[in-house]
Design a binder for these strands. Structure first.
Lengths: 332, 332
DNA sequence: ATAAAGCATAGAACCAGTTCCACAGCAAAA
DNA sequence: TTTTGCTGTGGAACTGGTTCTATGCTTTAT
């Protein structure tokens, strides 16, 4: 493989001039430029990205740390980040952890070793206190609220958005509400926030049997709906922790001809196609924002408002909520 | 950031000795080693992966070229590749193309620019003839049959496995068979192979209305089943181009109480949970093999046998096929 | 006429590693 | 006693880029 010095030699010009041609900056005469370009052609020269990255101290690579690459939530986030990154000429490496702390630390070490310019944590098993130690080694952003930790983030306040939905349901006169949650690690603390929100709005904890745990996919949704109806035949609403789960629940409800409503999360195509309400956490916006924050030189915490998309029967009962609220910016 | 020369200076030893400690090879006395290690500690030294990669001419990164990162077929492949790669201390970068030839060429250029040690094409829009021009720039493997092109591959012979399934159906006395296919690019040529296989087995082309095109997801499966039953009320089997599509089709069939069987592909959890038959193309094995072939210095073409997993009614009709056949190796 | 500004180029240092080669000391074998 | 082989170490060249600085020339402004 020919290098820049070979090109310089063959073209009869200096290395720095070749570099200037390569990067199209600085002064180069037309004649010199064409000499060099034809030398490159002749030698079949192509610049080495690694050497460039070393010299620049910048590799134009970012890593996205995520537990599972086949989970719709993280997929949507990764998709949004990748799209934005490609636009800015960055490459994205997906770093699956399975919530194994060793893997998470390994990826942080890669940041330290300059394998990445930055790392986006979509979720994590290790505490923030360990992550912030790597702050000096590159960009670092989380896709969840980092509270008082000195760490940039783009997030939705789940407690707020869950509370919002539950308040709306309460105001509309619903009281028999079943909830499904994932194992709490999947989206950090999401399960706890769900129950907390319920308590805040209704003033009492979730009645026995009205909380279905460990709901991960459509089939869990089917099971969950069965259990919830069994525990409360007067069930009015199932607030699920994802559209796939909601879709499964809806399927079951239709099968047993139970009139309860279903509410999902993430606004996936299933919620649209099956016409049920959903909380859109704007993952695309979160992903995009997370990337933007990566190379800011101050710590920025950006809250993205979620939207409650009402569909079907709920849309008739409840006035239109689509007021397109501006994202709140908290600068610390 | 401290570098290896700083460590050398502080520890009072040479750069090459520090390097030897770093890589744990060559002769180093215990005393020297501990001097150097404590100097590293003191300076908070961490080796720069980029510089190492440049020097070694090896970056321990591979790219996986795939059209969509949120398609179960490519996801399963990417998952398998990633898992294997991590075991061998390689990093995997997912390179989505949307079947845009410009993107595919861009990724090939990255290979040329040493951004990757190798590239795995799970699918592609550009012809093999363009890909093989990049053979000298690093590892290059396709996840489909490359026929006479000098390009390593790990693949299932879809014509063979489709033919196998159709032959079994024919032998079992079925003749009213509906098929769904994706847009032909999704899995290269898969649609054509499906129709070809049908013609080979049944001796005539697919009857009008028995081929549903452009099936991508569960909802297309619902539509497809509706259309196919409409076109042939005596429909006996739907052979779908994916488990999600088969799941949708099954849902529709149950809804309209039609007794047709459903056969899917890829052995996703849905086929297991809904208990329908499926063709397992062993994507995990293909992905793993593809990675293994990446750094072989000869061109190897490995065919992975697919398995037909019969479930439900079909499993009662048809004798057990689970003979665990060995993968065939074609060395060229 | 002279200083300032702009154009064009080359040289050398720098990024942070790896590795080949030379050399020295010492013990065991010839 | 000489040779061989092993251990331990350092120097320098090498990977392939970028960029700062110096220099000489031309053009324009004062």
């Amino acid at each position: 493989m020919a290098n820049i010095r070979d090109v310089a030699k063959v073209s009869g010009h200096s290395v720095s001039t070749v570099s200037r041609v390569l990067n199209q900056k600085g002064y180069v005469s037309e004649q010199t430029k064409s000499d060099i370009l034809s030398a490159m052609e002749e030698l079949n020269y192509h610049r080495n990205d690694l050497a460039r990255a070393l010299s620049l101290g910048k590799s134009y690579r970012v890593g996205v740390v995520l537990p599972y690459i086949n989970h719709p939530y993280f997929q949507k986030l990764a998709d949004a980040i990748t799209e934005k990154a490609l636009m800015e000429n960055y490459q994205v490496t997906l770093l699956p952890t399975n919530y194994n702390p060793d893997y998470e630390m390994r990826y942080l070490d890669m940041l330290k070793h300059q394998a990445f310019d930055g790392l986006i944590f979509t979720s994590r098993a290790i505490p923030f206190s360990r992550i912030i130690k790597y702050r000096n080694f590159g960009g670092l952003v989380c896709c969840e609220d980092t509270f008082d930790y000195p760490l940039s983030c783009a997030f939705t306040d789940r407690k707020k958005s869950f509370g919002n939905v539950l308040q709306i349901l309460k105001d509309a006169g619903y009281s028999h509400i079943g909830l499904t949650v994932s194992r709490s690690e999947i989206v950090s603390q999401s399960a706890k926030l769900t129950t907390k929100s319920y308590e805040n709005v209704f003033g009492h904890s979730i009645p026995r049997g009205m909380l279905y745990r460990d709901a991960k996919n459509m089939y869990d949704g089917i099971t969950a709906a069965g259990k919830l109806v069994e525990n409360d035949p007067d069930l009015e609403v199932i607030f699920a922790n994802g559209d796939q789960i909601a879709a499964g629940a809806l399927k079951k409800l239709q099968e047993i001809k139970h009139p309860a409503l279903v509410i999902g999360q993430e606004n996936l195509s299933s919620s649209f196609l099956l016409d049920f309400s959903t909380v859109d956490h704007r993952l695309d916006s979160i992903g995009e924002t997370a990337f933007d924050l990566l190379f800011e030189n101050k710590i920025i915490k950006k809250e993205i408002s979620s939207r409650f998309i009402t569909r079907g029967k709920l849309n008739e009962i409840i006035p239109d909520l689509d007021d397109d609220p501006l994202d709140k910016l908290i600068d610390k």
